[in-house]
Write a protein that binds this DNA or RNA. Structure first.
Lengths: 157, 157
DNA sequence: CGGCATCCATGCGGATACTG
DNA sequence: CAGTATCCGCATGGATGCCG
């Protein structure tokens, strides 16, 4: 990412976004490795929301019910599953208090907190861009509608 | 993210990762908005890989076949779908040349390139952390196996 | 209160075959 | 070469009920 001169000539980095790149006669080949499995988890429906919510009070554990009520439309099941996966990844720690009624609290681990800054840089880009993206989507879908409703020729076929 | 003093007292930000936060008597409530739809797309199985691969030569269009061969295990169908979605989001542009055989080239748009830096910060964190995360997963799964195979008491129940 | 079990709908994504 | 069409398995995730 750091080796992109502006003169139109590109170098050939042998690593991109943490993935090794092989250079073959037929073109570069991306060597897949583990980051995908992490991204897949982070990209699921609720994970980022839960992390964001926990980061509201990075130093104070939060009860299950507070999370449940704080994240609109999340089901109890998905909240449990999401927290369990985050715990498994060492990003969230769980504290169980066998009282009556029982109390369970969650908080970001050190590793979880270390993710906040890089994540924030990325979500900032999303926050600044998503309106444009959604506008592009609408434009794209409209254009698609117009072309299919008359059977107009598209450059796609 | 910028209002977290280290003294144990937290302020109450009314925005986190681009999402508005309401403060109610029962606790904070996250107001969901569109960034989720963008993250969901970016988090799918192939999108980041395709973007990463295109970013190898940010100033030169890339042929479909080069992408196909460069990204291991991606099917023709999923590559087409992923590229179509990226085009729809205005992150990738498509250039069709009606020759024989036909040639189609793809490249990142300006918007697509604007994503590279924030994304790099995040993938850097992933690259530096994923081994630890996978180690945590293994440890977690092992502990789970040990506890279930004897019916040992866990604090979960 | 927290969370596990169960059932079930939906859609993502893979395999294959066929067109311009 | 690039793309579409079809079929299908499977994981995701929602709804409900029960248990400590």
């Amino acid at each position: 990412m750091e080796s992109i001169p502006k003169d139109g000539q590109t170098t050939m980095p042998d690593e991109i976004n943490g993935r090794p790149v092989l250079h073959t006669p037929r073109g570069p080949v991306l060597t897949p490795c583990a980051p995908g499995s992490v991204l897949a988890r982070l990209g699921d429906k609720w994970t980022i929301l839960v992390i964001s919510f926990l980061s509201l009070y990075p130093d104070k554990p939060m009860r299950f019910g507070v999370l449940r009520r704080g994240i609109p439309d999340i089901s109890q099941r998905m909240l449990t599953l999401t927290l369990r996966n985050l715990e498994r990844d060492g990003l969230v720690s769980r504290h169980y208090y066998p009282e009556l009624p029982p109390r369970v609290e969650y908080e970001l681990t050190e590793r979880g907190r270390s993710m906040l800054e890089p994540l924030a840089g990325f979500t900032r880009w999303i926050r600044d861009t998503w309106q444009d993206i959604e506008a592009s989507r609408r434009a794209y879908d409209e254009a698609e509608d117009r072309s299919t409703e008359i059977g107009e020729k598209t450059s796609r076929e």
